[in-house]
Write a protein that binds this DNA or RNA. Structure first.
Lengths: 117, 117
DNA sequence: CGAAATTGCGCAATAG
DNA sequence: GCTATTGCGCAATTTC
């Protein structure tokens, strides 16, 4: 789509005289203005969206940090306790190794429910 | 055919002859091009940034979800175990209530789990 | 003050 | 056939 600049054509390329021509030009100029306003709005919205997302991101990162910390602590606690009383057999089907691993990718897919009460 | 609103009158505002004038015009046209390319690049980068942030966000949300799940499970586990052996006294100064609360904001009730059984 | 950069605006081609 | 979009040039203004 080669967009030529002003071609010095004098002929009736797209308009005939000054009557209909002017009207068309004016209408197009209005359309151009509308389009540009729209374009700017869109750009601004995109910029705003970046800021929103950055904020959400910060919140989420803090949340991850907090949760990771808590989880780490609880794991230590649990392991320390379990080392004293090795009765983890109660939690037979549970993937403790997986859950207690430092990694954070446990699915907790246990069907069996350890008798709670 | 109207030539750019500017008629034959010499405009001492910005041009003088056809010599220096043309050079100035050409240089400005180049500058305009540069500026517009730059502007478009910036816009595009902003759009890209939105996509990047959206992806990061999704990842973080999943992470939060996983961590929350793990944490909830571990808390249940810990509480179930602690109800059998009330030796939480080993962790004297620790805010277990706070940590073990389902939420990350515990009330100011500092009761020591009197062991109902 | 001087040159480049940015901006508003209109034109024309063309996409939809 | 009309509006919307876009590259381009001009000129005013801004920025450096």
């Amino acid at each position: 789509m080669p967009r030529r600049g002003r071609v010095k054509k004098e002929g009736p390329e797209s308009g005939e005289d000054s009557d209909e021509y002017r009207k068309r030009r004016d209408r197009n100029n209005l359309a151009v203005k509308r389009s540009r306003v729209k374009s700017k709005q869109k750009t601004q919205e995109t910029v705003n969206r970046v800021n929103e997302l950055r904020n959400e991101n910060t919140v989420l990162e803090e949340k991850v940090k907090t949760l990771t910390k808590e989880l780490g602590f609880l794991k230590e606690l649990f392991l320390a306790h379990a080392s004293n009383n090795v009765d983890a057999s109660k939690y037979e089907g549970i993937n403790l190794q997986k859950l207690l691993a430092d990694d954070s990718s446990a699915s907790t897919s246990n069907d069996k429910n350890p008798g709670t009460t």
